[in-house]
Amino acid sequence: MSDINIVTLIGVALLLIGFYGALSRPNIVKMIVGFAIADTGVNMIIVAVGYLPGRTAPILDSAADAAGAAARMVDPIPQALVLTAIVIGLAVTALMLSFAVRMRRSGGGMSIDTYGEQKW
């Protein structure tokens, strides 16, 4: 049990569930929901890689002075990366959804199977 990192386990599970949803559901919106869940899973994995047990957030205050900071704080780099990744995730989700709305508007159905024959 002790050599299993529980947060990355959750992250990998979410990633797999998200991919399963994106690959197996015929409904376009469901596929996008799957991608959003996979996105959350990836972010959890990245944050968990930088986590060190028993350490605090990388923010200085009166309790944590600059001198001993490096010995008491978690790795800040993955957090900075994930901060960026979450915002990009929203933008990509919105772009996928607007493609879905556009496909819907041009007369297609909600299911991806109805688009098999179209060439555009």
Binding site: S2, D3, I4, N5, T8, L9, G11, V12, L15, L16, I45, V49, G50, L52, A70, M73, V74, D75, P76, I77
Partner: peptide
């Protein structure tokens, strides 16, 4: 993805961090 699930047991952040 299995290697991520194993706890690598880092005690120190990397040199850059």
């Amino acid at each position: 993805l299995w290697p991520f699930v194993r706890d690598v047991g880092l005690a120190e952040p990397g040199a850059l961090a």
